[in-house]
């Protein structure tokens, strides 16, 4: 009788082991595979903007019938964020105007010429953030000076915090999106206001790598 009970226990143990062996690889596969999750580390620190994972998009109205989007492929700069003292947060970002890309080379040439951006005279667009004001969970307002086309004007971005955490190469990263609407005529870009809207929506995707 003791032998029968032992055999039953051993069978149950083996069964449990077999079940564990069958499930464990699946759970490991599930954990390392397609489950993308936002990282929830602290965003505090000083960061360099990663130009390979950051970009600036702009959207304008076209001929009163559609909206058209273009982008600047490069953005450089640094930012510092202290969630416990947000007033001490700072950002300086620079965008080479020559990195403009609308997907059609002749149009890029027109936009980079004296009609619009005049890239040879004004090669960079610059933003210096001066005031970071949290507005609830993961939202903030970032006020600063935007220098575009040789003119500097105050602008305020609506910021959405994405996440922070370690990367696979030993670094630490954080990411944001920021958007605002400007009038290009405020920056002296007032050609063809009848065909291309004065209002320009700017959206910035930033990924920073902690220094």
């Amino acid at each position: 009788m003791m032998t029968t009970i032992r055999i039953a226990l051993i069978r149950r143990l083996f069964g449990l082991l077999a079940l564990t062996a069958a499930v464990l690889p699946l759970s490991v596969l599930g954990a390392g595979g397609d489950s993308y999750r936002l990282q929830s580390g602290s965003p505090a620190g000083a960061y360099d903007i990663d130009p390979l994972h950051s970009a600036v998009f702009f959207t304008v109205g076209h001929l009163g019938v559609s909206e058209f989007q273009g982008r600047f492929n490069k953005i450089y700069g640094t930012f510092t964020l202290d969630p416990s003292h947000p007033e001490q947060s700072r950002i300086e970002a620079e965008v080479p105007i020559s990195s403009l890309d609308t997907g059609y080379a002749p149009r890029d040439k027109d936009l980079l010429g004296p009609d619009f951006f005049n890239a040879k005279q004004f090669p960079v667009m610059r933003f210096v953030g001066k005031k970071y004001q949290p507005k609830g969970r993961n939202r903030a307002l970032l006020a600063g000076d935007l220098t575009l086309h040789g003119v500097t004007r105050p602008v305020t971005f609506e910021v959405r915090y994405i996440g922070s955490g370690p990367d696979p190469w030993g670094g630490y990263r954080t990411g944001y999106t920021a958007s605002t609407t400007i009038k290009r005529s405020d920056f002296g870009m007032n050609y063809m206001l009848g065909g291309i809207s004065d209002e320009v929506r700017i959206t910035v995707y930033i990924e920073g790598k902690r220094k």
Partner: peptide, 10 residues
């Protein structure tokens, strides 16, 4: 529509 003075761009 405007002539900035002093001139800004060329």
């Amino acid at each position: 529509r405007q002539i900035p003075l002093p001139p800004v761009q060329v």
